[in-house]
Amino acid sequence: MEADLLRHYGVDLLDWHRGRLTSRRLAVLVRHLPRDSALLRELHGEAAEWSVTEHLLAAAVDQLAEANWMFATVNRDEDSEPPEYPQPVPRPGQTPDTEDEAGPDRDADPLPSLREMQQFFA
């Protein structure tokens, strides 16, 4: 943490000990450290590097991949195999074991048939 404060703000933590830096000011400086600081990466891991923008972009990519999958499934020949369900963009803090990463649970919620999808989009 001290290296982050020194690098970004030019603050020496000994100033807090010596009484030249108030606890309130130190707390404000720590709260406003940049996302790429070592402290935030240590506390939050890879998630510290993802902002709302990155999460929204990953969601948009996932939705586009699902829409392409639906289009390809509906417009395939009846005798051909359906395309594989797309894998979502990996997000920080999620493991491939989680439901979001693994796609739909094919045993609990089977994918619709070609006829069901064509009826839905008709």
Results as ranks from 00 to 15, higher is better:
residue 23 S to Y: 03
residue 6 L to N: 11
residue 61 V to F: 01
residue 37 S to F: 05
residue 114 L to E: 02
residue 49 E to L: 15
residue 51 S to M: 07
residue 52 V to H: 09
residue 86 P to F: 05
residue 47 A to C: 10
residue 88 P to M: 07
residue 47 A to M: 06
residue 97 D to F: 08
residue 51 S to Y: 05
residue 33 L to K: 00
residue 86 P to G: 04
residue 114 L to N: 01
residue 85 Y to S: 06
residue 79 D to S: 13
residue 89 V to M: 06
residue 86 P to L: 07
residue 80 S to C: 06
residue 103 G to R: 02
residue 67 A to D: 06
residue 81 E to L: 12
residue 96 P to E: 15
residue 114 L to M: 10
residue 1 M to R: 09
residue 121 F to V: 15
residue 102 A to Y: 03
residue 80 S to I: 04
residue 41 R to L: 09
residue 59 A to V: 07
residue 105 D to I: 08
residue 41 R to Q: 14
residue 46 E to N: 07
residue 94 Q to P: 00
residue 47 A to T: 05
residue 41 R to C: 11
residue 76 R to Y: 09
residue 21 L to P: 01
residue 20 R to Q: 15
residue 55 H to F: 11
residue 27 A to I: 10
residue 76 R to K: 13
residue 75 N to G: 10
residue 20 R to S: 11
residue 53 T to G: 12
residue 81 E to F: 01
residue 43 L to I: 06
residue 74 V to D: 01
residue 94 Q to A: 12
residue 97 D to H: 13
residue 89 V to D: 00
residue 9 Y to F: 13
residue 53 T to D: 14
residue 96 P to L: 08
residue 107 D to T: 13
residue 44 H to N: 08
residue 118 Q to D: 04
residue 74 V to M: 09
residue 102 A to E: 05
residue 29 L to C: 09
residue 85 Y to F: 14
residue 85 Y to M: 11
residue 16 W to H: 10
residue 65 A to H: 06
residue 101 E to D: 13
residue 115 R to N: 10
residue 121 F to E: 08
residue 31 R to N: 12
residue 83 P to D: 14
residue 84 E to N: 01
residue 104 P to M: 05
residue 15 D to L: 06
residue 85 Y to K: 03
residue 71 F to R: 12
residue 110 P to N: 10
residue 88 P to I: 08
residue 93 G to F: 13
residue 54 E to G: 07
residue 8 H to K: 05
residue 107 D to N: 11
residue 10 G to T: 05
residue 118 Q to N: 10
residue 48 A to T: 02
residue 119 Q to H: 10
residue 52 V to G: 07
residue 36 D to A: 07
residue 61 V to N: 00
residue 83 P to V: 13
residue 28 V to G: 04
residue 72 A to S: 09
residue 4 D to K: 03
residue 77 D to E: 15
residue 74 V to L: 11
residue 21 L to H: 03
residue 62 D to T: 04
residue 19 G to N: 02
residue 66 E to W: 01
residue 70 M to C: 11
residue 65 A to R: 09
residue 83 P to W: 13
residue 37 S to A: 14
residue 95 T to M: 03
residue 3 A to E: 10
